[in-house]
Nucleic acid binder design. Structure first.
Lengths: 230, 230
DNA sequence: CACCTTTTTGGAGCAACGAACCAATTTGGA
DNA sequence: TCCAAATTGGTTCGTTGCTCCAAAAAGGTG
């Protein structure tokens, strides 16, 4: 049935680790983390659960592999431009992570989890190294390098996690961002004006603001603060 | 329809919403998020699942209620001190969140989730209002208030999430922080020195650093950067 | 007191999950 | 041609969140 002309290709086209990861990403994008079940995978790949466990291990291992694949690709995508300014490079890395999570909202939780629980893994080390190299050029004294890089990573992952669109994850109404913002604005407006003066003061800025620009403002603020650490 | 004098005391000591939340926290602290199952709750409370659903709804509702209880308590605990300096108040709020998550590591994921998915809830609004009030005093122009407060909240929640101790959550060895840091340090040391110059440069700072102080350094950096936004 | 309505409880049952397991099949080298 | 190793598909198991419902408890009304 198969014309095996070349060696060592085997059935890798039938079911490979890459194909499993690829399909897992499709399921995750379509319905969030809850939609990526072993059963959904076996159906879409027309195989059994044994094959999947043989290739990538349990559900958790698969999610880690998927995370590593996407983050590594995102970080490698724009390493060509050799920016001279350290803040440009920081911005580039930050935006790469921002965008990959905007495209795959379920990544937010997983990425944080992986950074916390696998500080020795490719993902954590890759992000830290890429960011960390720039803090020296920023004028941060060597003794504060770890603190400075940690501050940046903490902010980047925090901001990026809290900006997730949570599309396929929310059960009931307000499926689009507009309606969700409307509901939030209305709720903030309904707060007691005396108890919540700040929320009232900024409620008008909610619709106008752009997540991406706000994110970059935060980066600029931190970079600015870091240059004064010396 | 009814205005009874001592109403609703009833069997509230037998099974109340508060007692369910209390027990849920015990289970969560003991074994992480996975340990808080409906069945574990019913066993410990000597009741059935129906009673729990009647009181607090599904598992997700219960986790939200638990999160709200702890965060509200943490924020209310130290509101007595009327600090004159805005950065002191910011530090106070930040440390309150840091400490409550250090005590209940499973809170990290849940708190971020709640901020993202319920921007109109008590928790999100409480944190935002408390932080936001200070940015004006910091000299931030009104048009940037929302950005400034968002930057602080993003950093605080990000840093606090990534510093979780993940005690009852990790399956295999390295149960104490020391062994975990040792393993991380060894892994960083084993990285190729040419590909990862930064990781080698800071590996010695890993053991020496204190999470809490590093966290405060980050806060100071951001506050410093914010004062120059004007 | 007896009576009835509402609230609250405990548990059985259901569908779906992750994971372990294993007999059957396929592969590539001897 | 043959066989050990690699790979597969599907069955099974224990557990989960949740729904449903009969019964018990509570409290008001005569």
């Amino acid at each position: 049935m198969t014309t095996r002309s070349h060696r060592s290709e085997r059935r890798n086209q039938v079911l490979s680790r890459e194909r499993i990861i690829e399909t897992a990403i499709e399921l995750l994008d379509a319905g969030g983390e809850a939609a990526m079940t072993t059963r959904a995978l076996t159906e879409r790949l027309s195989t059994g659960s044994g094959a999947i466990y043989y290739r990538v291990g349990g559900r958790d291992d698969l999610l880690d592999a998927v995370t590593e694949t996407l983050v590594t690709a995102a970080l490698a995508a724009d390493s060509v431009a050799v920016s001279s300014l350290p803040e440009d490079e920081i911005r580039t890395v930050a935006l790469a992570l921002f965008d990959v999570i905007a495209e795959h909202p379920w990544l937010a939780t997983r990425l944080t989890r992986q950074v916390v629980r696998k500080p020795f893994g490719t993902v954590t080390v890759g992000i830290f190294e890429r960011i960390g190299r720039q803090v020296g050029a920023l004028g941060v004294p060597r003794a504060s390098w770890f603190d400075a890089a940690s501050t940046l990573v903490h902010y980047i992952l925090g901001a990026v996690s809290q900006n997730t669109a949570m599309e396929g994850d929310i059960p009931d109404g307000s499926h689009d961002r507009g309606a969700f913002l409307d509901a939030t604005e209305a709720a903030w407006q309904d707060l007691d004006a005396e108890d919540y003066p700040f929320m009232h003061a900024v409620v008008s800025q909610l619709h106008a603001h752009d997540d991406r620009e706000q994110f970059l403002t935060g980066i600029a603020v931190i970079v600015d603060g870091l240059t004064r650490l010396g």
